[in-house]
């Protein structure tokens, strides 16, 4: 579904350039639920931004299914972003002038296909994430966790095939976190959606099929869940994180 090969990205600050991604390669299968972990500043957000072509990568190959993203023109890329991808941004990026419900509907409106069914789905997503009560409020009037849930709901509205989520549970209590994870799992089972989620939270990561750990700009280690129990997998993840910290 998603192939990343030898991806490199550096930022230019003044005259010096900082290499953040130093050749990242990974593969995500259709219907897989993958988490990306790594210390703060290790380039997780940068990786997501490169995958969605929000920022240009220096080199490397990015394929979504059989299409190579670098080959697409602007309009086709926009179409892919709108119809096939769903984003949850680390800082949410909600529009201040729209209500929670309007924000959730935004990708559908951009795509030009809002039916009664879409609106019903928006309301249903509000129910699922416990934000039905605030759906007519504006972003300035809701809490950080509520914004995050709104952002997740927005990512799901167009039934995306690939969900790219940057710490979707970062601001949430365990109950809300679970609601987010469950909705990802639902998307996965109902639509064969693929989920690629950045997280610091080993609890959230323990629900995934596979966890990729980034360090110093490369993939440091990949942990497969396989048949491991969730609690056991979480312990393994914690061990790995601890080990990384020691080195």
């Amino acid at each position: 579904m998603l192939t990343v090969e030898n991806l490199r990205k550096s930022y230019q600050v003044g005259k010096t350039s900082y290499e953040v991604l130093k050749g990242v390669s990974l593969q995500v299968e259709t219907g897989e639920f993958v988490a990306v972990m790594g210390p703060s500043g290790s380039g997780k957000t940068t990786l997501l931004n490169c995958i969605s072509c929000y920022i240009p990568a220096d080199s490397g190959r990015l394929c979504l299914g059989k299409t190579e993203l670098a080959r697409l023109d602007e309009d086709a890329l926009a179409e892919v972003r709108n119809k096939q991808l769903g984003f949850v941004f680390q800082d949410f990026l909600l529009l201040d002038g729209l209500t929670v419900r309007q924000n959730i509907l935004l990708p559908a409106i951009i795509g030009g296909l809002v039916s009664d069914m879409t609106e019903a789905r928006a309301d249903q997503l509000c129910e699922v994430f416990g934000i039905a009560g605030i759906r007519d409020k504006y972003p300035a009037e809701i809490s950080g966790g509520e914004k995050q849930r709104t952002a997740v709901a927005r990512a799901l509205i167009n039934h995306p095939l690939l969900i790219l989520a940057d710490e979707p549970t970062g601001n949430l209590d365990s109950k809300s976190s679970r609601a987010v994870i469950r909705s990802f799992e639902q998307a996965k089972s109902a639509l064969e959606a693929t989920i690629f989620m950045v997280t610091h939270d080993s609890y959230a990561a323990s629900f995934c099929d596979r966890v990729v750990i980034l360090r110093d700009g490369v993939v440091w280690r990949t942990l497969e869940k396989g048949a491991t129990e969730r609690e056991k997998f979480q312990d393994l993840l914690l061990d790995a994180v601890r080990e990384m910290g020691r080195e």
Partner: peptide, 16 residues
């Protein structure tokens, strides 16, 4: 520009 950027990020085309 923030609004413009968000719209583009959610898949609005530049033409739109």
């Amino acid at each position: 520009s923030r609004e413009t950027g968000v719209l583009l990020a959610l898949g609005a085309s530049r033409a739109q």
